[in-house]
Each structure stands twice: as C-alpha cells, then as structure tokens.
C-alpha cells in the first residue's frame, strides 16, 4: 500500500478541478437572497386575503406581481411565474417605473427610491388594494405593508398593520406571528 496510485489521484484531482471550473458553475450571478425573497412573496399570498372586489374589478385573470424600479430579482420572479400559480391564477410579472399605474398589480415590490415617491406609491396601492413589499430600511414605517430586513442571522420581515387594514387585506395570524408588527401610518402625499 506504500505504492499509492498517484496517476489515479492525479485523475481524481483533475476531475475535480474540471468540475470547479466548469463555466456553468460560474454562470449564476445573482445571489440566493432574492431567490428566497421570491419564495417569501409566494408564501405570503397563502396567508393574505385580498378584498373581494380586487379581482372582480380586474378582468386579467392573472395574478400580477409588479416590480417598481430597478429589478433586483433578475429572472427569479419569471421562473416563479412558470413554476406556480397563485390563488389558482397564472402569475404574470410586470416591470414598471415608479410612476406607472399599479392599480392592476396584486403585489408591488418597491425598490429604493426617494421618500416623496414612496408616499405616492403607497397611497396609490392603498386605494387599489395592492400589497406593497420592499426591502429597504424604514419603508415599513413609511407605509409599505411588508418590508424585509436582516434580522440577526435570518431574513425577517415587518408588517404595517395599519396600512394593511387600510388596503383591506386580511392577514393570517400565522404570518403575523412571524413578523415584526409596525403600527404607524405611512402618511399621504
């Protein structure tokens, strides 16, 4: 056994190095964070009931997720849309500017933007019963209904109860138990 098969070992290491440097291993560029946030978004819909008139006034027969501003998800939400239905409806993803109409959105993910614009968006969202989601510190207090944050070792989220009530969402206690509850009014423009 002293005469170890170095040629075999060389082959093994070569195979390994080949794997490590395979281009497809390096192809993925977005991080895991937004995959998890995309999954969270889908999970939220299981615990939230939209007002009955939301879908009766919307004839699209799709569940619309809108991303406002620079899209941080890459193609993750499109993948989500291919893999699943939400509320028994096919999922459609829209990428919008901040000042676009969002009334047909069921969910609006809002990226970082100036404070005066966030107020305008939350106001529009409230009137149209659009569930607003963001991942910017302070957006929960500014009226976004669900706001992700880094909590110790975990990804956490806060829920603005006043805003969710104003937008007439019913949120399951199971989801509320997991959230940091905010009870401040986001204000109006």
């Amino acid at each position: 056994m002293k005469h170890f098969r170095h040629s075999y070992l060389t082959w093994l290491i070569f195979a390994w190095v080949t794997i490590l440097h395979c281009p497809s291993s390096l192809a993925a560029s977005n991080d895991q964070e937004y995959s998890i946030k995309a999954a969270f978004i889908e999970k939220f819909t299981h615990f939230i009931t939209w007002p009955q008139d939301k879908h009766s006034t919307d004839s699209s027969n799709t569940f619309n997720i809108c991303v406002l501003g620079n899209n941080p998800f890459g193609d993750k939400l499109d993948t989500l849309a291919r893999l699943t239905k939400i509320k028994k409806l096919p999922v459609k993803i829209y990428y919008l500017n901040h000042d676009d109409d969002i009334s047909y959105c069921d969910i609006a993910f809002i990226t970082r933007l100036p404070a005066n614009q966030i107020n305008a968006i939350t106001h529009k969202a409230r009137d149209s019963s659009v569930l607003t989601i963001a991942d910017t510190p302070g957006y929960g207090e500014q009226g976004v209904i669900i706001n992700f944050y880094s909590k110790e070792q975990f990804l956490g989220f806060e829920i603005n109860r006043i805003e969710s009530d104003l937008a007439r969402f019913r949120i399951s206690s199971r989801l509320l138990k997991l959230a940091n509850i905010i009870e401040t009014h986001g204000g109006t423009p």
């Binding site: 998890i36 999954a39 999970k43 299981h46 070792q153 199971r174 989801l175």
Partner: peptide
C-alpha cells in the same frame, strides 16, 4: 424554496 414552509425560509 417553494417547497419550504414560510418558517423554513431562513438563511
């Protein structure tokens, strides 16, 4: 990720 419960979606 979609197969996980919401409680499991942690880093």
């Amino acid at each position: 990720l979609l197969q996980l419960s919401i409680e499991d979606l942690i880093n």
